[in-house]
Amino acid sequence: MPTSLVMPTAAKLTAAIAFGGLAMLTANLVIEAMPTEQNMGYFIPINILIGAGAGWMVAGSRAPGGYVASFSYGITAAVIFAVVSLFTFSSYIMIIQSLRRRYDNGMEAVVGVFELMAEHFIIMANYEILGTLLIGGMLAGMLTEWVGQRFA
């Protein structure tokens, strides 16, 4: 791993906290949008970690780069958070279903991950969740940029 991703800076810390908060807010909205009442377990804490990691590695490592760029890397970090979260939880569900012998072979299980990702994306594809990710990503990117410029 390149040292530029590991070396702590004020911008990276701010990005991790901001995108972790955005992830917590988004995870709560996704739980409300789920069609059935089910135990979500560690859904929120794992999403916070994924969001903080996306903020640290994507947004924090690119600051300071200007306020126009902050919109771009803020949205990029939010999209990366969403995709990694969808993949993580779809993979988890696939493993649970594999242990229940739902799939006949490994390839069917791998395809099942992407089918689950598509199903979960359809659940979360509403204006409230996508708007939160878009606007929250831009605001978190601007905050990261502000801290990056002040403490660089």
Rank of each mutant, 00 (worst) to 15 (best):
M124Q: 14
M138D: 08
V111F: 03
M142S: 08
M117P: 02
M142G: 12
A125M: 08
G131C: 08
L134R: 09
L139R: 06
Y127A: 15
I122N: 08
I135C: 09
V113C: 01
E128C: 02
M142W: 15
V110R: 00
L134C: 10
T132P: 08
E108K: 01
E115H: 08
L133V: 13
L139T: 10
I122S: 08
V113I: 15
L116F: 07
G112R: 02
G137L: 12
G141W: 12
L130R: 06
G137K: 10
A140N: 05
L139H: 03
G112K: 03
E115V: 09
L143Q: 09
V113K: 00
V111K: 05
A125I: 00
G131V: 14
A140Y: 06
H120D: 04
M142N: 11
L133I: 10
V113T: 04
L134T: 14
I135R: 10
T144F: 09
Y127I: 15
E108A: 08
A109H: 00
G112D: 01
M117G: 02
G136I: 11
A109R: 02
E108V: 01
L133D: 11
N126L: 10
A118N: 04
E119D: 13
T144A: 09
T144P: 09
E108G: 00
M142Q: 14
A109G: 04
I135L: 14
L143S: 13
A140P: 07
G136A: 05
A140T: 12
G112H: 04
G112I: 02
M124R: 12
L139A: 15
V111N: 07
L134S: 11
I129M: 07
E119W: 04
L134G: 07
T144K: 06
G131T: 14
M138A: 15
G141T: 10
L133Q: 10
G141V: 09
V113M: 06
Y127P: 12
A125S: 14
L143W: 05
L116M: 13
I122G: 01
V113E: 00
A109K: 05
L143E: 05
M124A: 11
F121N: 04
G112A: 04
M124T: 14
L134W: 12
G112F: 03
F114M: 04
E115C: 00
T132H: 09
V111S: 04
V113H: 00
G137E: 06
G141D: 09
F121Q: 02
I135K: 08
M142A: 11
F121E: 03
M142K: 14
G131R: 14
Y127R: 15
T144V: 13
E119N: 13
L134A: 15
G141Y: 09
T132Q: 03
V110Q: 05
A109M: 07
H120A: 09
L143H: 12
G112C: 00
A125L: 07
H120T: 11
E115M: 05
A125K: 12
I129G: 10
E108H: 02
